[in-house]
Design a protein around this nucleic acid. Structure first.
Lengths: 214, 214
DNA sequence: CGTGAGTGAGTAAGCACTCACTCACGTTAG
DNA sequence: CTAACGTGAGTGAGTGCTTACTCACTCACG
């Protein structure tokens, strides 16, 4: 990581980068291009150019274009530490906070659509890593959500719905929002926060007015 | 349509097909391939083979591969006559039927995922016809739904929610269901009818139990 | 001076697309 | 009734270009 100090010795010729750094920069460049143009829509020439190296070097690091794609999906499959915060809200039975956390993790200012696009492309194009990528990015929260709903039904707090379908419904609202705005390019019509609040309120409270006058 | 009678005259050489028929068979073959592999993932050779003609003939009908893709999106942009049935339910204020109709139009036995896949691919790959295709396939019902919800809010039947967001939430549940099953290949865990009913009930009634005991 | 980062110049296969051509068939001139 | 003809369906064999991938090679650095 202290390569820069050494690099100053040789000014005229480019300083050499370590293998892991180069690999990372190739993965980043490729991920962005694959997310934009898909697997078949991206050429190894484009990737090499974006990473600032020759195509030959790309193939020194990854034996095939497909292997590079696989490496990206494997690397990007890791998720951030949202789970802990969500589980805390779940333990305290803070329903609104629980759902708001889940929703605003995906609906927020400056959320990067790269992962979402990669996920969709990999599923549509039928890449072999698609399943694993899907499971890691998606299934984790899906199961967490379904488990919480089941628990709250058992406690009598929620209506007796199908927990799996309810979880999918909530995810549907969120995922669809991203589909509309990140993929189809629809403009936002409310702020992220107001949108999340409305979605959560709708999901928890439903649409039909509960008769307060009998 | 009586080409086959004439065909019996000449056995050794293939009977000729009219231009419009050939065009239609090319569009069908191409639509299926584009839906499966995307635009860049499909070759003109594959399309020609699937339609049973030479590549040269394909280019007699469509000047470029892109023109063929555009022709498909234009043709497939038309939707069936669901709107009338939905508007009838809306006029009668049959809430449950209204939402069930909309949902079961997309969630039903043997629903063809081709259109959905084409829509997703065209949006992801950024084709110029994507917008029009999206509008025709999607926006129509979206606006219809938002309009109905707004009306029912004015009549005091629904809670005072944002009609646009509510419409998107409902569509989200449905679209996400198709995403999971048609694109990600998740198995169904209930019947189509039971699933639709649960989704509609969830959307209309919400998740949280309404306190019947004060 | 050995190791490994890095590349220019390939290669064979595949790509979208073209061209010169054949042939089926309905129309029409003799 | 037939023969010549025009039109349009249909194709085999290309075209130039791009693709994923390779190889022989250079050179920076510990």
């Amino acid at each position: 990581m202290n390569k820069f100090a050494k690099a100053s010795k040789t000014l005229h010729h480019a300083p050499r980068t370590s293998g892991v750094e180069r690999q990372a920069s190739l993965i980043n460049a490729a991920a962005s291009l694959f997310a934009t143009n898909g697997f078949t829509g991206t050429t190894t020439k484009q990737i090499a150019k974006a990473a600032g190296v020759s195509e030959a070097l790309l193939f020194k690091h990854f034996p095939t274009k497909r292997a590079l794609y696989t490496a990206i999906l494997t690397e990007k499959a890791h998720y951030s530490g949202l789970r802990e915060a969500v589980e805390e809200a779940a333990a305290k039975r803070e329903d609104k906070r629980f759902f708001t956390l889940l929703a605003s993790y995906r609906i927020r200012k400056g959320a990067d659509p790269t992962l979402f696009r990669l996920l969709l492309f990999s599923a549509l194009e039928g890449h072999e890593m698609s399943d694993i990528f899907f499971r890691q990015q998606y299934r984790v929260f899906h199961d967490l959500l379904a488990g919480y709903i089941r628990q709250r039904i058992d406690e009598g707090a929620y209506r007796s719905v199908d927990p799996l379908l309810a979880a999918r419904a909530f995810f549907g609202i969120i995922v669809h929002h991203r589909l509309l705005h990140d993929i189809f390019g629809l403009p936002m019509h409310r702020t992220h926060e107001a949108t999340v609040e409305e979605y959560v309120s709708l999901f928890l409270g439903g649409l039909v007015r509960q008769s307060s006058q009998p």
